[in-house]
Design a protein around this nucleic acid. Structure first.
Lengths: 234, 234
DNA sequence: CGTTTCGTTGATGAGGTTCAAGACCAGTGG
DNA sequence: CCACTGGTCTTGAACCTCATCAACGAAACG
């Protein structure tokens, strides 16, 4: 089963929901009306099926992307072909924007984890915009800063926390409640979450079952948390 | 032994060597003469002794830094007080610049791994500069992009490679030779290298000794490599 | 209703951490 | 010059976490 880098389904027209997602991106928020128009001229909307590869490592980097719906995983391969996820991007997340002023080639692979809609930005056009319009530059800097901090968090978490701790942390992040019971609906498959946390799917499964003793129960994608503060002590 | 966040030794005058390092930074290269002057006005040079803490996580982030000499480690603590290195910065590296348009508080700790000289940039001043001068913005974006790519590399490496592979990769990066024998002088203590690679010092030691069978010998900080291409196949 | 993908569970082993002990080395002071 | 000291590094042993492989059950999907 070869995951090919096939032509994407272009849809010239952007629907309202996707547009709303795009506009609330840190990338677009804070742009002046003028720059916003220019930025939108650099965008193409594309829809891709699950498992489709968006780009591969070492391909010429002509575009960067913003996820409008669905999820995209960024990953790298080692020589034996094993994959390791670097980041999982959901609605509102941009990726590969680090190449606007970085390398000329993609440095990792990107694949749709499920059916997805993407905004595709012309790298050259945005680069020019960034050099001329302070608000565009500011948006890019904010975005890069945020991603850098997230990546550093990721390194620290991998090195400091065990599997159950990482799962607990993920759950706590996705349910902004101080204490007491809560429930979280995973927005994607568990295998994707596993990769996100740097775990094999089996390890995620075991981490969940080890969290049962602190009152976490899992049924499909629905996670029930008995007491949020108990989870925080893991 | 408490590592205190004591006042730094200010030295108003920057020596020529330090100045040369600063000017060759991606941060300063590419700046116009005008912006360069303004940027230099935001800088203070400070010297700090080994083990001195530069800043701590959750302190208000008023400055970011550029290492001129020595090494600084960025790390985070878990609840039990175990430390995990996120990055090690050497001469020419900037750190905490992700907070120019990021958070208002440091997100990790920084400590001198040995006696070091730092350029300290006033965050507010540089933020203003970045918003007004396109060349400053461009320098910051380039710098952030580079760091983001490095951080992503780090995540991928941690998840894909074993200890000997990481050591091999480090050695190969620090000796840009295609094949045959080579030698590398480690620029810092092994314990620092261990942290950099996400390993306990013991694990680094074992990794080195496991590399003996591919012709790597270690004497103090001097690493002799029998055949670079053999090392590349690890 | 079969087929396929996904998730769980068990058994096993590799890779690293931790703890403890000793080797090595440079500096210091008798 | 030697002995002592403090720090760094190495080595061994026990333990732990997690990846891997294989088998099975459960959904999802046509």
């Amino acid at each position: 089963m070869e995951k090919h880098t096939a032509p994407m389904n272009k849809s010239l027209k952007i629907n309202n929901r996707d547009k709303a997602v795009l506009m609330r991106t840190p990338f677009m928020t804070g742009l002046g009306a003028d720059t916003l128009v220019k930025m939108m001229n650099a965008v193409t909307i594309t829809s891709i099926p699950a498992r489709q590869v968006v780009f591969r490592e070492s391909m010429p980097a002509d575009f960067f992307f913003c996820v409008l719906s669905g999820y995209v995983r960024l990953y790298r391969l080692n020589r034996e072909g094993r994959e390791a996820d670097i980041r999982v991007c959901g609605p509102g997340d941009t990726f590969a924007e680090c190449l606007i002023f970085g390398d000329d080639f993609y440095r990792f692979n990107a694949q749709a984890a499920e059916n997805a809609t993407l905004a595709r930005f012309d790298m050259r056009a945005v680069r020019q915009l960034a050099e001329r319009e302070p608000d565009a530059a500011r948006a890019i800097m904010t975005c890069l800063s945020h991603h850098l901090l997230t990546a550093m968090d990721c390194v620290a978490n991998d090195r400091l926390h065990t599997a159950p701790q990482r799962v607990a942390e993920y759950l706590l992040k996705s349910c902004p409640i101080d204490g007491g019971p809560a429930s979280v609906r995973l927005p994607f498959q568990k295998s994707l979450l596993a990769g996100m946390l740097g775990l094999a799917p089996e390890a995620l499964s075991r981490a969940f079952s080890s969290l049962r003793r602190v009152g976490v129960t899992v049924r499909g994608r629905l996670v029930q948390i008995g007491d949020v503060s108990a989870l925080r002590d893991i």
